[in-house]
Design a binder for these strands. Structure first.
Length: 518
RNA sequence: GAUUUCGUAGCUCAGCUGGUAGAGCAGUACACUUUUAAUGUACGGGCCCUGGGUUCGAAUCCCAGCGAAAUCACCA
């Protein structure tokens, strides 16, 4: 057991804790506190229709007196002798509270105000108050406190962020390392961080509602998989002791959802935490969330319409408009979105029509366009590189890119009119991929061949090639109806919908190197 | 993985060409019965990320390490 080294302020707070107990006040009481209103409800309910003069003189208010019980953290104090103002922060926001010594301590004993409130309580402590609503001389809706209860003592000083009348913020808690490592502090102190995460939840709820309204079923599929399929990525590996087998954290849930379509469900979706053992940067975290949905008897054209309706709904649910600011621009999610085929996109941004080129011609074209390529790259990979380098970043407003090379899409049905292409689209927003969808490959023989092709790639040294999943093939052999599937990067979509430029800002607890202990 | 920048009080930050530390907020004490970045007076608070080196002397210069951020590379 190592001795915790306390700074001066932590020592004071522990002393206050002891003194509270000596006074017979339990700093961590067990009983519930009968909260009956939130700070936001008070402000919304009483904001209108009350003349401040009417309310200022409390005696005049006897008839309209509004008793409230609320609780939260003490976030600031302005002590003026026998009266004090403070701010209480609950999950809905902050409200000013007013304490008067002789009202809190009606008898001779003034300890509760003089000692407990003024000395032993600190910023960050949880308290409960009972009192009534009033409006101050300058018009701020406040709570006049009649009873105060200690609910939980805070032993560490919070960063103090102050704001002036113009809304300028002083001493903001901004160090990203501290904010990510101690997200709880970040959330207490930075209102806008809290807003971002509320929007994230709203976004996911909006998606759920959309899918449920269509009658699709939310399901759960295995996170621990013995064959990490459905995507091309390096997995995290683990081991099951009882079975004595290696297991992998899923890199995708696609193959399981398709098994459920085989099983007879019309539409299934899952918010899937996926895990990929790859690099981290401002758009990649080792664990991340993808929403995948599979709908039977549909194709990728249907899915495009479904996707743009979904995105439009999300924007409206979050902002009551389809226009969402992002960085310097405004993204407009008003459906329909433009559809651009990959060949068209490449022609638009390079002036070269590659639709009839073979591998050798493509390699020359790439080099002419200044795209680095090597001899191991096949036709599909070359097109992908060309698109990534020359086109991708140009699609700022929501745009569907359609008809990818079939080699890059081993789980996707061949295009109905061009067997070199796949019936696949990606939704690009702000130059980044947000969603990916297929007319799903349901021909078991073609699927087996595609897996074999992946194995050949693996033998050639492509460590991202997919592993063959025999049970999945068996499922397809029983028959999967024509199906369209869609995957949406929830973290990335949240970034775009909340105007954040790093994934860390939309994950409560982004992956960090372990903190050093000393 | 590469490059660059950063790491000083609980928080936000100063600290020049080397002379072992400052401010604001927060804290402590006192005053103050409607303040709101409350105010006034006084006082505390530092392994200057860690470890080496150069030097009479290092927060400062050099090297290494640890952590973070940005850019690039990689990456369905």
């Amino acid at each position: 057991m190592s001795q915790q080294i306390l700074n001066e302020q932590e020592v004071f707070r522990r002393e206050s804790l002891t003194k509270l107990r000596e006074m017979g006040i339990e700093p961590y009481p067990a009983a519930l506190f009968p909260v009956n209103i939130s700070s936001k409800e008070i402000k919304e309910t009483y904001a209108e229709g009350l003349e401040k003069r009417d309310l200022l003189i409390n005696e005049l208010l006897e008839g309209k007196r509004v008793n409230v019980v609320l609780a939260g953290r003490l976030m600031s104090r302005r002590i003026m002798g026998k009266a004090s103002f403070a701010e209480l922060q609950d999950s809905s926001g902050r409200i000013q509270i007013y304490l008067n010594r002789d009202e809190i301590c009606p008898g001779e004993d003034k300890e509760l105000y003089n000692t407990v409130f003024k000395k032993l309580l600190d910023i960050g402590d949880f308290i409960g108050i009972k009192g009534y609503v009033f409006v101050t001389q300058v018009g701020e809706i406040s709570v006049h406190v009649e009873e105060i209860t200690v609910l939980a003592k805070s032993l560490r000083p919070l960063p103090i962020v102050k704001k002036d009348e113009q809304g300028n913020v002083y001493d903001a808690f901004v160090d990203p390392e501290l904010r990510y490592r101690m997200r709880y502090v970040d959330l207490v102190v930075n209102q806008q961080v809290r807003e971002t995460f509320l929007k994230r939840t709203k976004l996911m709820n909006s998606m759920r509602q959309f899918f449920n309204d269509h009658g699709y079923l939310e399901v759960e599929t295995p996170v621990l998989q013995s064959i990490p399929g459905g995507a091309a990525a390096r997995p995290f590996t683990t081991h099951h002791n009882a079975l004595d087998i290696p297991l992998f954290l899923r890199i995708a849930n696609e193959l399981y959802l398709k098994r459920l379509i085989v099983g007879g469900f019309d539409g299934v979706y899952e918010f899937s935490k996926n895990f990929r053992n790859e690099g981290m940067d401002r758009t990649h975290n080792p664990e991340f969330t993808v929403m995948e949905i599979y709908v039977a008897y549909k194709d990728y054209n249907w899915m495009m319409e479904f996707t743009e309706q979904l995105l439009e709904k999300i924007a409206v649910d979050l902002y009551s408009t389809t226009e969402v600011p992002f960085g310097e621009t405004v993204l407009n999610y008003k459906a329909p979105f433009p559809r651009v085929s990959m060949y068209e996109a490449i022609e638009r941004f390079t002036g070269v029509d590659i639709s009839n080129m073979d591998e050798a011609q493509l390699r020359v074209t790439c080099r002419q366009q200044g795209v680095e390529v090597d001899e191991t790259m096949g036709r599909g990979k070359l097109i992908d590189e060309l698109f990534g380098a020359k086109c991708e970043g140009n699609f700022i407003q929501p745009t569907f890119i359609t008809d990818f090379p079939v080699e890059m899409s081993p789980l996707c049905k061949r295009h109905r009119t061009n067997p070199q292409l796949a019936e696949r689209f990606e939704l690009m927003v702000n130059g980044k991929e947000v969603a990916n969808a297929y007319s799903e490959l349901n021909d078991p023989i073609d699927q087996r061949e595609r897996f074999m092709e992946q194995m050949r790639l693996a033998d050639r040294g492509d460590d991202e090639a997919m592993t063959i999943d025999h049970d999945f093939l068996r499922a397809l052999e029983y028959g999967m109806p024509p199906t369209s599937g869609l995957g949406i990067g929830v973290d990335r979509l949240t970034m775009f919908m909340t105007n954040q430029s790093t994934i860390q800002e939309v994950l409560f607890f982004p992956q960090m190197r372990p903190e050093k202990v000393h």
